[in-house]
C-alpha cells in the first residue's frame, strides 16, 4: 500500500506538471506551424502571466479578474513581440529566428527582474486548498485545477482550429500559404493571431502553476525547454501529439524524481529529447522528408 500510494501521488504530480507543459507546448506547435518559428520565448509568457497575475491580485483585484487581465496583457505582449521581432525578420533562416526569440526571452527575463525583482512570489490557490486523500495519497485541489484547466485549454484549441472561421484560416495557412492567400487570408495576420494565442496559453500555464510552485523571473526558461521536449515527442507540428508528449514527460519526470533523484530529472528529460531527435526526429507519428533540388 505504501508503494501504491506513492505511485498515485507521483502520477498526479506528473499529470499536473504535464498539463502545464501541455499548455505551453500547444503554443509552440501553433506558432511553429503558422510561422515556422521555434519560439524560445514561449516559456517566458508563462513567467509574465504568473507574475502579472500575482501583482494584479496583490493590488486588490479579485482573483478571476486578475487572471483574465493578466492573460489579456500577455496576449498583447505576444502581439507586440510578433510585430517588433518576428515580422521584421520573417525572411531570415530558421536558426536566425530561433536566436532572435532567445534574444527576446532575455529581454523578458531582464524586464521581469526590473519589475518584480529576483525573489520568488506566489499566487493564492484558486479555491480553498484543503488536501484531499485518495488511496492514502494527498492531493491538493490546485492540482486538479491545473489538470482541468489545461484539458479545457486543449479541447477549446481543438475546437478553435477545427470549427471556427479564424481557426480554420490559421490552419489553412499551415497547409498552403499560397492557396490561403488566394482565398483572401493574410498569412501575416495569421502569424500575429497564432503568436498572440500562444502567448495567452503560456500565460495561463504560468498562472495555473504559480500557486503550486511559485513564480519568479527565471521560471520560464526551464518550462519552455520542457515544453519543447514535449512538442518534439509529438513531432513539433502535431498539437494533440504534443499534449500526449507533455503528459508522458510530466509523468516520467515525476517518477524519476520520486524514485531516483530530483537533480537528474532534467538530464533524463533532455536525454529523452536527444533520443527522440536522433531516432525519430519527426516525432512518434511522422515520416521524414528532405529538401528538393
Amino acid at each position: 500500500m505504501e508503494v501504491f500510494s506513492q505511485f498515485i501521488q507521483l502520477f498526479f504530480s506528473g499529470l499536473t506538471i504535464g498539463s502545464i507543459y501541455a499548455l505551453i507546448a500547444i503554443g509552440f506547435v501553433v506558432t511553429y506551424n503558422v510561422t515556422g518559428v521555434l519560439n524560445f520565448a514561449q516559456g517566458e509568457f508563462a513567467m509574465l502571466g504568473a507574475l502579472t497575475a500575482i501583482s494584479l491580485s496583490g493590488a486588490g483585484l479579485p482573483l478571476w479578474a486578475a487572471i483574465s487581465l493578466a492573460i489579456a496583457i500577455v496576449v498583447l505582449i505576444g502581439a507586440l513581440f510578433e510585430k517588433t521581432a518576428i515580422y521584421p525578420a520573417r525572411h531570415s533562416s530558421g536558426a536566425t529566428l530561433i536566436i532572435i526569440t532567445i534574444g527576446v526571452s532575455f529581454v523578458f527575463r531582464g524586464l521581469a527582474i526590473f519589475i518584480w525583482g529576483t525573489q520568488p512570489k506566489s499566487l493564492r490557490p484558486f479555491t480553498a486548498n484543503d488536501p484531499i486523500t485518495i488511496f492514502q495519497a494527498v492531493l491538493l485541489p490546485q492540482n486538479l485545477w491545473a489538470i482541468a484547466i489545461s484539458l479545457v485549454g486543449v479541447f477549446s484549441m481543438g475546437y478553435f482550429f477545427n470549427k471556427t472561421y479564424i481557426g480554420k484560416a490559421v490552419s489553412a495557412c499551415v497547409v498552403n500559404k499560397f492557396a490561403a492567400r488566394l482565398m483572401g487570408i493574410h498569412p501575416e495576420k495569421m502569424s500575429l493571431i497564432a503568436i498572440s494565442i500562444s502567448a495567452g496559453l503560456g500565460a495561463l500555464a504560468g498562472i495555473v502553476i504559480a500557486p503550486i510552485s511559485g513564480a519568479s523571473y527565471n521560471m520560464g526558461m526551464m518550462l519552455g525547454m520542457k515544453a519543447f521536449v514535449a512538442a518534439v515527442i509529438g513531432g513539433l507540428t502535431n498539437a494533440p501529439a504534443a499534449v500526449v508528449g507533455a503528459f508522458l514527460l510530466g509523468i516520467l519526470e515525476s517518477f524519476a524524481e520520486g524514485f531516483w533523484s530530483a537533480g537528474l530529472k532534467d538530464a533524463i528529460s533532455f536525454a529523452l529529447l536527444l533520443m527522440m531527435l536522433f531516432v525519430k526526429p519527426n516525432g512518434l507519428f511522422a515520416k521524414a522528408t528532405g529538401k528538393r533540388v
Binding site: 521581432a85 532567445i102 534574444g103 527576446v104 526571452s105 532575455f106 529581454v107 527575463r109 531582464g110 526590473f114
Partner: peptide
C-alpha cells in the same frame, strides 16, 4: 535585457 536587445 541589453544583450537580448543587442541580439535581436
Amino acid at each position: 535585457v541589453f544583450f537580448g536587445v543587442l541580439l535581436v
